[in-house]
Design a protein around this nucleic acid. Structure first.
Lengths: 195, 195
DNA sequence: GCCGGAAAAGACAGGTCTGTCTATTTTGTT
DNA sequence: AACAAAATAGACAGACCTGTCTTTTCCGGC
């Protein structure tokens, strides 16, 4: 018996589809990009797609889940690289943001855009996008606690507001500046939250 | 000669179309709602729509512009009703937000959703939605200056990040709580910005 | 009662969309 | 070389999309 996993997952075609779908969905939008466009771009047959994903919606969910993991890993890496100072570790989140905003193909937050394109809160795409925001919130609570905040969940929540706002601003202005504004505000909030 | 304005605007049919379009676009999304659905809901003929608007895109822009005026007026009214204390006037923005979040049909920020559905920054819909955010920013700069902030534009920018973040959070959680979090953070930032 | 403009009704063109199906070809393993 | 699994090409259904066009109907002012 081969060691093939029970769930159909690790497949080169599947990965290639996910990567291409991510690129197009993020660039143009989840709804506006059609299956045929995606297949032409990926150079993959339609039946192959529907063998790996039950529907376009299912594909979108998978794309968002994968991106969520990448973002969480990137964030955790940036925090770890920031050293041991709890304050610096917390503010490293905003430096990481600045880097993200500076990328040439930055088009805003894929998760906020998913929440917007699928505004019904019980829609699977909406829910998986929101699950990402909650995962980030968890990371922030840890950092806030480390940094000695009196009420870590409260500080984390405020920081998330700053981050989401910065993501929106950076998208529309095509600028990394909002990261700096958010960073300064975060430092101020942290100071106040320690007292 | 009657006092009809030069620009074809104040028409009952046009207003009715704008109102219906707003309701459907805000509930379901700008792209997902088709012209035919809108016309059936408004009980208006297709040619009537295309007599008042040159295209669907033109209609979306008009809807967003109208909503922007309403929001700015609502905000200005809430600030004025808050009295003369500059701090209270500034924080009234967040109380107004709380009321907005509590509305039964609240579905997030129509402008952020427009920015998300039309992610190209030079798209007319993207630009008109961003113009709204800048108009709100102007109002905030005034309030920040009144409240004695050292750098009013900087404080206003930070407040806008909090507001946009709260709008996203309130949408996904169907809760008015983010308004309180943002209000508290805003009060803290204001205190720090006065020193 | 009549006339003119606004609106309605509905067909139409030319696309696009998702998802299914079949038949053929490629690929990897033994 | 043979076989099985995976992927391909391409047609297809049935629905939807925006925008245009023509014909008919309504309605208010004179």
């Amino acid at each position: 018996m081969s060691s093939r996993p029970a769930v159909i997952s690790a497949s080169p075609k599947r990965d290639h589809l996910l990567a291409t779908a991510w690129r197009l969905f993020y660039r143009d939008g989840y709804r506006v990009v059609g299956i045929d466009t995606l297949l032409a771009e990926a150079d993959v047959a339609k039946m192959t797609l529907y063998k790996h994903f039950s529907s376009k919606e299912d594909l979108i969910v998978a794309v968002i889940r994968k991106r969520s993991e990448e973002v969480q890993d990137g964030l955790a890496g940036a925090v770890q690289a920031a050293g041991r100072s709890p304050e610096r570790r917390l503010l490293a989140v905003f430096d990481w943001l600045k880097g993200l905003f500076g990328e040439a193909d930055f088009r805003g937050c894929a998760f906020i855009r998913a929440l917007s394109e699928f505004p019904e809160t019980d829609h699977p795409v909406h829910q998986v996008a929101w699950a990402h925001k909650q995962a980030v919130r968890k990371q922030l609570v840890g950092l806030a606690a480390e940094a000695g905040a009196k009420d870590p969940p409260a500080l984390a929540e405020a920081l998330r507001l700053l981050i989401d706002g910065a993501l929106v601003s950076a998208h529309a202005t095509r600028s990394a500046k909002p990261a700096g504004i958010a960073r300064q505000a975060a430092a101020s909030l942290l100071k106040a939250a320690r007292r």
